[in-house]
């Protein structure tokens, strides 16, 4: 059998209940269960997490930096999506 370091898994950690999951790095593991245990040992030695996701790196689809301009372009000219676009008289409260 060929010696190898196993597939790559990306690790996401939720630091506290209610918080979003954040990417923190990657581990190598032969399967999901071991990826989860490796991620725990590598990234949460000091209570950094309440929950972990591991995702096979090959299944992550990412936007490409070269196309970033066009990709995010549809949102650039839509100032009316922001609350500050609308001017209201100062007497109106709680809005």
């Amino acid at each position: 059998m060929q010696d190898n370091q196993w597939p790559l898994w990306e690790v996401f950690i939720q630091s506290k209940s209610g918080q979003p999951y954040k990417h923190c790095g990657s581990v190598h593991a032969p399967d999901g269960a071991m990826a989860l245990e490796n991620a725990r040992d590598v990234y949460t030695r000091r209570n950094e997490g309440t929950s972990i996701w591991v995702v096979p790196a090959q299944y992550i689809i990412a936007s490409t930096p070269e196309e970033v301009g066009e990709f995010f372009d549809p949102a650039n000219d839509k100032v009316y999506r922001h609350p500050t676009f609308y001017t209201l008289p100062p007497e109106v409260k709680y809005i």
Partner: peptide, 12 residues
Amino acid sequence: GKWVRDAATAYA
């Protein structure tokens, strides 16, 4: 450690 890597791969 090679046998451990091999065994885990085989199991997976």
